[in-house]
Simulated scan of single mutants.
Amino acid sequence: MTSRSTPGLAWFNSAEEPAARAALHEMCAAGAWGSTLLAQRPYGSVEDLFRTSDDATAALTDADLAEAMAGHPPIGRPKPGDPTSSREQRGMEGSSEALKAEMLELNLAYQERFGHVFLICATGLTGEQMRDAVRHRLDNSPQQERETVRRELAKINRIRLTRLTEEGAPTA
């Protein structure tokens, strides 16, 4: 990403607080993350926005992480009518019914073990890669998994912020 400003970044820098907050909430449901990004406006570059996002994600408490995860649907079941969710989980679209059923079982086992949805940056991953990731992560300790979730959330936030900075004001 270039260090220059983009039309989307210009929109974000100048948007009324409620509109900017709503756009951020669609990207990440953690209110603390959104508040941190809003407090640092205006941004001189997309990289500055990314750095602030990464720092804000790293600073999320366990409760903030739970709030963020509550905004994400389970892998294999994107939110109906949500193009972002569908686009990010595209790797599951062509999966066999057996793989979809296995993912449902793994999602449930993960949720039972960790108490929250399995969060992964699914963009560009196949259904098999997501399945293998959840299988592997079921062996993590709760602390290891929190840190993995934090890294995955940071990746998701960057992808979504890139989209905002490239496309500008969200359409509702």
Rank of each mutant, 00 (worst) to 15 (best):
T57H: 12
A58F: 11
A58K: 15
A58P: 05
A59E: 12
A59R: 15
L60N: 06
L60R: 04
T61V: 15
T61G: 11
T61M: 04
D62T: 09
D62I: 06
D62P: 08
A63K: 06
A63P: 01
A63C: 03
A63T: 15
D64K: 04
A66I: 05
A66F: 03
A66L: 12
E67A: 15
E67Y: 09
E67P: 08
A68R: 06
A68G: 03
A68N: 01
A68F: 04
A68C: 06
A70W: 04
A70E: 14
G71D: 09
G71Y: 07
G71N: 07
H72C: 07
H72E: 09
H72Q: 10
P74D: 11
P74E: 12
P74Q: 09
G76L: 08
G76F: 14
G76R: 05
R77L: 14
R77Q: 13
R77A: 12
P78R: 09
K79L: 14
K79D: 13
P80K: 01
P80N: 08
G81Y: 07
G81Q: 09
D82A: 12
D82R: 03
P83C: 08
P83L: 13
P83V: 09
T84I: 15
T84E: 15
S85C: 10
S86Y: 05
S86A: 13
S86V: 15
S86K: 13
R87D: 03
R87A: 10
R87W: 13
E88W: 12
E88D: 04
Q89V: 10
Q89W: 09
R90N: 03
R90T: 01
G91P: 02
M92A: 03
M92S: 00
M92Q: 03
M92F: 15
E93I: 01
E93L: 14
E93G: 02
G94E: 02
G94D: 05
G94N: 06
S95W: 10
S95V: 13
S95F: 05
S95H: 02
S96I: 04
E97Q: 08
E97D: 13
A98E: 13
L99F: 08
L99H: 08
L99G: 01
L99W: 02
L99T: 06
L99Q: 01
K100S: 10
K100V: 02
K100P: 11
K100Q: 14
A101V: 09
E102S: 12
E102G: 08
E102R: 11
L104T: 15
L106V: 04
N107H: 07
N107I: 00
N107M: 02
L108P: 00
L108R: 05
A109F: 09
A109H: 02
A109K: 10
Y110H: 11
Y110R: 00
Y110G: 03
Y110Q: 00
Y110V: 00
Y110K: 01
Y110T: 02
Q111W: 01
Q111S: 14
Q111Y: 08
Q111H: 09
Q111L: 07
R113V: 05
R113E: 12
F114Q: 04
F114W: 07
F114T: 03
G115W: 15
G115C: 13
H116E: 03
H116D: 00
H116R: 07
H116Q: 06
